[in-house]
Amino acid sequence: MKKLINDVGSVVADTLRGVAAAHPSLRVDVENRIIFRRDAPRPGKVGLVSGGGSGHEPLHGGYVGYGMLDAACPGEIFTSPVPDQIATATTGVDGGAGVLHIVKNYTGDVLNFEMAAELSGDEGVEVARVLVDDDVAVRDSLYTAGRRGTGATLFVEKIAGALAESGAPLAEVARVGREVNDRSRSFGVALTPCTTPAAGTPTFELGDAEIELGIGIHGEPGRTRAAHREAREIVRLAMDAIDDDLPLSGETLVMVNGMGGTPLMELYIVFAEVAAYLEEKGATAVRSLVGDYVTSLDMQGFSVTTCALTGDLTRLWDAPVETPALRWGR
């Protein structure tokens, strides 16, 4: 393992020190591991709090700022944050209009955010929750923990954040967050596994000629393994999985996301194939993101996330945002 770290035990804390030093628009509570908007809490504005394991940067801390999150709670690598941490963030961003928790659907995240919501409720903070579960690689059935939350988390944070910035009440902000999740689907493909600093070895084995289909964002193996092939064909596998679940049509927001170790050039090659696939289906990528947005440490690979837009959702997507990792219009 070769990584730019000081000590395996201080990776998260050292990351937070870097975030604090690089971004004066943020207030970083290193001890409690919370990244706040510097001007939080904003009186009368619904607060948005998200969080999850570290290792997915820029998610979530990179999306704290005007028009998006008010606070982010990073856990240990691939491990959800703890209740006290989330509750401290929640009470810290409450401007009297309540707080929205944006939670990716993993057993640990759900349990810790639930406990935090109870603690915050005891302090008199009204909390609503949007559960993100966009990954079509996992069947939502009695036999799984339900679909995972992956790329759509960013869409929910951006669009709900824009509505909150406009002064909308908590119920409305939560409703639009759920709408975005309902309209979004994702599928991920890995060319290589990732290596967590604590383990020091790759999280799974993958041969030179193999790819892993239907991966999540925690270095866990996917649903199936397949032979490596042209980008065009890999994209078709991913897009077919999405289209089977929610047929693609109309104006679509598309993210081709790098998993952390993928050259941008390859992501653009993937995007070209995604755009061609959409056209075949009568859909159009009217808004797009290409780059590393929801990563899995040093994994090579990509995920595609689509969201079927409406006029309102497009306006909220286009609304000004100013965070370390997403900024436009301001």
């Binding site: 959800s80 944050p81 703890v82 993993y106 640990g108 349990l111 810790n112």
Partner: peptide, 8 residues
């Protein structure tokens, strides 16, 4: 202190 599912 633990986080994840195993902590709760």
């Amino acid at each position: 202190k633990v986080g994840g599912a195993s902590g709760p």
